[in-house]
């Protein structure tokens, strides 16, 4: 009796081990659907897409969450829905794009008459966007990350009146990289995606693209 039981046990153990192995195999070795590739490249141009049977998990990058600004509608949920408070999403400035405007749509409240840094003129609720005079007529705008709460107010202003150099981004030194990002779940435009950890940014205008390509306006845009 105990012998038979032991044998059955061993059999089951072997079975479970095999099942686990099968499962891992299914996850590791599998054909890709040609949509994405763990190299972080788009598979569409890759000659091995579809038939590619490389062990996906072995070469798979860790992924992190990032926000695709092209989809963002600045609803403010990044500020309120992050498990961290203040949010790990913060405004990030692509300096390479900035127009150094005197009248910055991301900085000034609408209707501001006298362009000074006084409180009544500032759009940012926490005074996190700093304005500094460089030389006539240029101003530098920087972000105090400690103060920024990721509300996206300036991002909306910059996008509407400027060239969109102020962008919301997940700051990976603050992000806990939750398995399922709570902002992603609540993002109305599904703008949060998993990106390879070695390419954690989805910012545009960092000096790698031609003006206009980002907005697809054919060379007459920034």
């Amino acid at each position: 009796m105990p012998g038979r039981r032991e044998f059955l046990n061993t059999l089951m153990r072997g079975g479970i081990l095999a099942a686990l192995g099968l499962l891992s195999g299914a996850v590791i070795f599998r054909s890709r659907d040609g949509k994405s590739c763990s190299y972080g490249f788009d598979c569409s141009g890759c000659s091995r897409s579809k038939s590619c049977m490389l062990p996906a998990a072995l070469e798979a990058r860790q992924t992190v969450w990032q926000l695709d600004m092209t989809k963002c509608i600045q609803c403010g949920r990044c500020a309120t829905n992050c498990v961290m408070s203040p949010s790990a999403v913060k405004c990030t400035h692509a300096f390479a794009m900035c127009g150094y405007c005197d009248l910055c749509g991301g900085y000034f409240k609408p209707g501001t008459k006298i362009l000074t840094t006084a409180a009544e003129n500032q759009l940012c609720p926490t005074n996190a966007l700093k304005r500094k005079f460089i030389e006539d007529p240029f101003f530098e705008y920087t972000i105090d990350e400690e103060l920024c709460i990721g509300c996206g107010k300036c991002v909306k202003g910059c996008g509407a009146f400027g060239n969109g150099s102020l962008q919301l981004q997940v700051r990976h030194d603050r992000c806990k990289n939750c398995n399922e990002c709570s902002i992603a779940r609540n993002c109305p435009s599904q703008a949060f995606t998993r990106v390879p950890a070695n390419k954690p940014s989805l910012m545009r205008g960092l000096g790698k693209e031609r003006p206009g390509t980002a907005a697809k306006k054919g060379g007459v845009d920034a």
């Binding site: 600045q74 609803c75 403010g76 949920r77 500020a79 309120t80 759009l123 609720p125 709460i149 509300c151 996206g152 107010k153 909306k156 202003g157 609540n186 109305p188």
Partner: peptide, 10 residues
């Protein structure tokens, strides 16, 4: 329904 007010709306 999720929160539909944005306290930081511009």
């Amino acid at each position: 329904k999720q929160e539909q007010t944005n306290p930081y709306d511009y």
